[in-house]
Amino acid sequence: MHGYIRIVDAVNLRVGRVMMYGIFALMAILLWSSISKAFFVPSLWTLEMAQFVMVAYYILGGPYSVQLGSNVRMDLFYGDWSPKKKAWFDLFTICLLIFYLCVLLYGAVSSTAYSLGYWGSEPFSYLGGLVTGAEELGRLERSSTAWRPYLWPIKAVIVLGMFLMLLQCISEFFKDYLRIKGEAI
């Protein structure tokens, strides 16, 4: 349990620290957009690229923001509870959060499978099959803009981010458990 917490937190910390600088990538794209618009022909790709960067920024940065404790809670009662009581409540309610993340992840995986040309109802086995070579790529989904980027990369990023978020929340679950047992984390 300690090992899991250490590894997951370390991975998400690194990922988050890298994504943190995404703000400058976003800024650069938007500045290029205004420059190209003012002096040349407006770029086709800037707005959509900025949207992709933003998605990566907040989805992949999500687990780190959980570590930072940035996610607000309503502390009408919660604020006055003892650490142990907080941990007890969290232990239960974080399971609900984990459930939400599982549903999100399932949707993301099936949408990613779709973007790779799979239209069936077993997205996980399809993606597994892709890795082992049992399945083939189908029609690749493209964005319906003039730039027409393929959509699987950003969807894959979302899958990865939601998976990391899931791992992080399981780590939080373990931490609550340890807190209740009175162990150091």
């Binding site: 996610n71 809670r73 919660y78 907080k86 959060l97 939400y100 999100l104």
Partner: peptide, 22 residues
């Protein structure tokens, strides 16, 4: 009710949303 338990706001809202949808 979920919000009152003090869980992260996004988790409380998201959970109710997907459970209701399911």
């Amino acid at each position: 009710l979920m919000l009152l338990t003090g869980q992260r706001v996004f988790g409380a809202i998201g959970f109710i949303a997907v459970v209701a949808a399911l």
